[in-house]
């Protein structure tokens, strides 16, 4: 078996998710090549060559791939990947965008967002926002798979010495152009990949009170999220929503503040390693999934939490 892993990066550095995907590839077994497609992405290729277990790094360095447009990446990966038994990418917004195009061009199914490898053709993945876990088997000759990075421990990013090979395959589908990009300037990590998430619910009462959570989050290097109730009440924007119709998160630590724990919220965060709930209603369903529950008024508990964290961090 031979596996092609598509690197996730920003043209200057390799994202850790790539190392998680290589770990999934190792679980399948076989030779692992990494494709780095981008523009002026030499440093990324060098980083990928150092990753544990990588056999070869292929580099497609061209302006056509600079903004990771799905149309161009789809054609490139379908071309390069047709000689492999598996094509893997992280299930981030880049992988989710181009991988189904790869599958369609190769006329094979895609297995999305896997959380476990059972065998070379059988994978475990969440459905119904994680309320059910399906084991699926692919009958296609090439398995196109996206991987949930948080479900696999990353391989080491140092120590490997894979050969780096330049590809001269240029695929510009001519269907789309990059116009602009607006990346959140916040120093906080991205909600979907953060190691710690602090979320607020309807109990926060208004948007200004989320500043309390932001201060706690900044102490811990955490992202800030919200329940659908808080979003629907207009406290915070929709992109902060954790839940079945928002972002699915699985951090090491999830702190739910003033969140009752509606089904739709639990579906988005119950894979977190450790869950803390702070709520004044001791009957709140969130306590049924919390490892540590604190029955308290959040307006007293959150400032105290900030002070206590300052002592230990």
């Amino acid at each position: 078996m031979s596996i092609l892993v598509i690197a996730e990066h920003d043209n200057s550095s390799l994202k850790q998710a790539t190392l998680n995907v290589v770990a999934a590839a190792k679980a399948i077994g076989g030779d692992i090549d990494v494709l780095v497609a981008g523009e002026n992405c030499g440093a990324v290729a060098e980083a990928a060559a150092k990753a544990e277990g990588v056999n070869k790094v292929l580099v497609a360095d061209n302006a056509a791939y600079g903004h990771f447009l799905g149309e161009n990446l789809g054609e490139l990966v379908a071309e390069v990947g047709k000689g492999y038994s598996h094509i893997l990418a992280a299930a981030g917004t880049v992988g989710k965008d181009f991988m189904p195009r790869v599958a369609a061009l190769l006329d094979v199914a895609q297995v999305s967002d896997i959380m476990r490898v059972e065998s070379e053709d059988t994978f475990v993945r969440p459905i119904y926002a994680g309320n059910a876990i399906a084991t699926v088997k692919s009958s296609d000759s090439i398995k196109v798979v996206t991987v949930r990075p948080t479900a696999f421990d990353p391989v080491a990013g140092e120590g490997g010495s894979a050969a780096v090979e330049q590809l001269d395959v240029v695929k510009d589908a001519g269907l789309s152009q990059f116009v602009s990009e607006e990346l959140a300037k916040s120093d906080r990590p991205d909600l979907a990949s953060a190691g710690i998430v602090v979320s607020g619910g309807r109990g926060m009462q208004n948007g200004d009170n989320f500043k309390m959570l932001e201060q706690v989050a900044d102490l811990m290097g955490a992202a800030v999220g919200a329940s659908r109730a808080a979003v629907d009440a207009g406290f915070v924007p929709n992109d902060m929503q954790v839940g079945q119709t928002g972002k699915i998160v699985a951090p090491q630590l999830y702190i739910a503040v003033g969140i009752s724990g509606a089904i739709q919220h639990l579906a988005g965060m119950s894979d977190s390693k450790v869950i803390v709930a702070i709520n004044k209603d001791e009957e709140a369903p969130i306590f049924q999934v919390a490892d540590y529950g604190l029955v308290a008024d959040l307006f007293e508990a959150v400032p105290q939490l900030e002070e206590e964290l300052k002592k230990v961090l």
């Binding site: 994680g130 084991t135 699926v136 088997k137 009958s139 119950s270 999934v289 540590y292 529950g293 508990a301």
Partner: peptide
Amino acid sequence: RLSTLKVEAPASRQAGVKVADVAELV
């Protein structure tokens, strides 16, 4: 092209412990 071999409920979480105050939580 894909066959579903089985569908299971996710591992259910057990409710943990209640802590008395913020200091104990931290």
